[in-house]
Write a protein that binds this DNA or RNA. Structure first.
Lengths: 226, 226
DNA sequence: AGCATGATTCAACGTTCGTTGAATTGGAGC
DNA sequence: GCTCCAATTCAACGAACGTTGAATCATGCT
């Protein structure tokens, strides 16, 4: 009996590519934050050995930046399409779609959200800048949307568009993050419903806050973002 | 030469009480989060040995709850005074003071903010509930303020006051947290100025969003919260 | 069949962490 | 001046961490 039931050492029948590792990393980073997340936890989530991570990535930080590089571009691409000046739909409706895009790309799991939300402030130096530059890229598109609204006369001319963009996006992230957790206890409704109602209430409040004519009725907003 | 320059073992000339340890803990917890903050870092910040912490507190978690128990009641007490229905000032002005109270109690250092903001979502079970209950206590007072505004006819009757309270406070925390960090690069202004302008812009937008008559001019808002 | 190579695991290193028990000392009370 | 206690430090434990180098296996190429 040379070795009773030792698990095989070599490659598994099912290969593990970098993407699968990134999915696991997103889960764990989102749950624990960059610093508290352990490579052993990520490996366990992915179902492999921690050392395998070093075959695909140089370090924990490199894994993090790879995660950003994978998840951000699709979101930005959706925003870019939406920010096309040829789109002449009502600005409130387009802002509603902004919330939808964030919901679609960041809403499904804790994922990048807590990480984007938190790591800007408490993250290490280099990472802070990396996230900032990515977030700014997305925010700039949303801001241009507000400015198109001003030119169309639908949005107040004296609006601070940069701060307003910050408000719109930051609160949407908070809605996606916090409402599902506190909804059952505080709002007495299931998480999905709470998020949907929160987004709708937020857009109404925000739009009233920035509209040239706050009393004018909003165009109908399509159903929840799924 | 029995011992060249060994530092003394016994009590220092200057005693260290639990409050000083809590101050150091607030600094480190706020910077690193509950999980990533180390007792050794807290001890270094306080200028004592890590073991001393265990003389005053049972554990790291106990230290955290003690910190909440110390910092929250003064904030809630200020809110309670402000929510007195006998206060007949304009509701927008009272909401401006709400922002001021949060600024005053949570604005000076990273302190509890990042912690309140983050740990609700990603914290351990028991702590999550602890923070929630404290936050709810404060939020309830702000909500009553909105409802007084409705009764006075200054705030829209169809407002979802619970969600609106969530919006008001969450975004104020984000303003205090993020604006100082990103202001120099993005807004091109010093942190304090950015926070002051952000708070003012936020109150204007929020008030327009909830007012019965959004076009009516706001009462003058006193200068920045200091 | 043999071999090279890419994918995976194992075992270990050095570090840091939360925590503990014993040792030490300054000051209060007698 | 002695004693006792509260406050503080020291030294160490076991666990978990990021990381690395060598070992192992599966597969495709020749």
């Amino acid at each position: 009996m040379p070795s009773p039931a030792r698990p095989p050492r070599g490659p598994k029948p099912t290969r593990m590519d970098a993407d699968q590792l990134l999915d696991a990393a997103q889960e764990v980073f989102g749950r624990d934050g960059l610093r508290a997340a352990s490579l052993r936890a990520i490996a366990k989530q992915a179902g492999c050995d921690p050392a395998l991570i070093y075959y695909h990535f140089d370090s924990k930080e490199a894994m993090f930046t790879a995660l950003l590089a994978k998840r951000f571009p699709p979101l930005v691409e959706d925003l870019r399409r939406l920010a096309d000046p040829a789109d002449d739909r009502h600005t409130a409706l387009r802002l509603w779609e902004v919330l939808g895009i964030y919901h679609h790309h960041l809403g499904r799991d804790p994922g990048l959200r807590g990480l984007i939300r938190g790591e800007i402030v408490r993250g290490a130096e280099g990472i802070q800048e990396l996230i900032q530059s990515r977030v700014i890229g997305a925010a700039t598109l949303v801001r241009s949307l507000l400015e198109q609204g001003i030119q169309r006369g639908e949005v107040r001319k004296d609006l601070h568009t940069l701060l307003s963009t910050f408000f719109l996006l930051k609160l949407q992230l908070e809605i996606l993050d916090v409402l599902p957790v506190v909804a059952p206890r505080i709002l007495g409704m299931p998480p999905d419903e709470a998020v949907a109602e929160g987004e709708r209430a937020w857009l109404h409040l925000f739009w009233r806050g920035i509209a040239t004519d706050p009393a004018a009725p909003l165009p109908p907003l399509p159903d929840s973002h799924d």
